[in-house]
C-alpha cells in the first residue's frame, strides 16, 4: 500500500480548477486555430478570431475563458494500492473545488435544492465524481468544468437494435441540429453507445474528456466519428450559429457492451471552451 495524504488531493484539485478555467488546452486551441483556416464564412472567421483573442486575454490577464466556470466534474481512477490518509476522497475533492473556485475568482454556479429554494451553495460544491478502481498505487484525476448552457443540450435515447447505424446517426445529428446556436458552437460532441440508460450518459460525458480530435481506438468507430462530424458541419450552422462550415470541432464516441434487447445512445455537448485537465499523483 502507498499512503497518500488527502490534503495532497485537495491541493491538486484546487490547482486543476484554476488552471482549467483560465488556460484552454493545446488540443482545443489548436483545433480552433485549424478551424479558422477551414471556415469559409467571413462571419464565422470573425467569431473564431474573437475566440482565439479571448484565450490570449484570459491567459494574460487571469480572467476565466468563460463566465460559466461550470459544474465540477471528475473521473478518478483510484489505484487499489492507494491508501488515503487524513480524510476521505469525496471530501478531499470537494475541499479542493471550494478552495480552487474561491481563490481563483471563479463563479459559483451550484444551487443546493434543485427544485424549490435553489439557494447557491456559495463554493461551487458538491462536485460530480465518478470513480473507477484500477490496479496500481496512483490516483489519476481528470477534471472538467462543465458549462450549463451546453449541458442543457443533452439527450438519451433507448434505440432499438434494428435502428442500427442509421438510427444512431439520425439521433445524434438531429439532436445537435435542434441544439443549434445554444451550446456555443463550434462544439465538441460526446456520444455514448451501449450499456444501460445511466451508463450511456456517463459514456457521453467521458467522451468529452478525450483530447479533441483524438480518434476512437477502434477504426470502425473512428470512421463513424468522422462521418457524423461531416454531417453535423454540413448543417451550415457554423460558429455561434451565425452560419458557416464549422459547427463542430470533433465528435467523440465511447462505447460499452449492450443488452440483447437494447441500443442505448446519448449525446452530451461541450462548447468551444472544452476545458479538461488531468493529473496523476
Amino acid at each position: 500500500m502507498r499512503d497518500l495524504a488527502a490534503s495532497t488531493v485537495t491541493e491538486t484539485v484546487a490547482e486543476m480548477c484554476k488552471e482549467a478555467n483560465i488556460y484552454l488546452g493545446d488540443d482545443v486551441s489548436g483545433a480552433l486555430r485549424r478551424s479558422l483556416e477551414e471556415e469559409e464564412s467571413p462571419t464565422g472567421q470573425e467569431v473564431l478570431k474573437q475566440l482565439i483573442a479571448n484565450l490570449e486575454i484570459a491567459a494574460k490577464e487571469q480572467i476565466p475563458i468563460c463566465q460559466d466556470t461550470g459544474f465540477a466534474v471528475f473521473f478518478v481512477e483510484v489505484g487499489q494500492e492507494v491508501h488515503l490518509t487524513g480524510g476521505g476522497l469525496t471530501e478531499a475533492i470537494n475541499a479542493g473545488v471550494k478552495k480552487g473556485y474561491t481563490e481563483g475568482y471563479l463563479r459559483k454556479s451550484i444551487v443546493d435544492d434543485p427544485l424549490y429554494d435553489r439557494k447557491n451553495t456559495g463554493d461551487n460544491t458538491p462536485a460530480v465524481i465518478y470513480t473507477d478502481i484500477v490496479p496500481g498505487d496512483k490516483l489519476k484525476i481528470s477534471f472538467a468544468p462543465k458549462g450549463g448552457g451546453s449541458e442543457n443540450m443533452s439527450a438519451v435515447k433507448m434505440l432499438k437494435p434494428a435502428d442500427g447505424e442509421e438510427g444512431l446517426i439520425d439521433f445524434v445529428v438531429n439532436h445537435v441540429k435542434l441544439a443549434g446556436p445554444n451550446p456555443c458552437p463550434p462544439i465538441v460532441v460526446g456520444v455514448g453507445i451501449g450499456g444501460t440508460f445511466d451508463r450511456v450518459a456517463v459514456l457521453a460525458k467521458k467522451a468529452l474528456f478525450r483530447p479533441v480530435g483524438q480518434p476512437h481506438s477502434d477504426i470502425k468507430f473512428a470512421d463513424l466519428e468522422k462521418r457524423i462530424l461531416k454531417k453535423i458541419n454540413d448543417l451550415g450552422v457554423g460558429p455561434q450559429g451565425f452560419g458557416g462550415r464549422i459547427f463542430a470541432l470533433a465528435v467523440h464516441i465511447e462505447t460499452f457492451p449492450s443488452h440483447i434487447a437494447s441500443l442505448a445512445a446519448a449525446v452530451n455537448i461541450n462548447c468551444h471552451a472544452s476545458r479538461h485537465v488531468e493529473r496523476i499523483i
Binding site: V47, Q50, L51, A53, N54, L55, I57, A58, E61, I63, P64, I65, C66, Q67, D68, R107, K108, S109, N120, G122, G149, C184, Q240, C271, H272, A273
Partner: peptide, 25 residues
C-alpha cells in the same frame, strides 16, 4: 459571442450592483 467572456469583459468600463445582491452572479 458566447464563451468570449474575457474579451467582452474588457469592453465594460464600470460595473455596480443595483439590485438583488443576494443573488450573487
Amino acid at each position: 459571442v458566447g464563451g468570449a467572456g474575457a474579451l467582452l469583459s474588457k469592453k465594460i468600463k464600470k460595473c455596480e450592483v443595483v439590485a438583488y445582491p443576494e443573488l450573487g452572479p
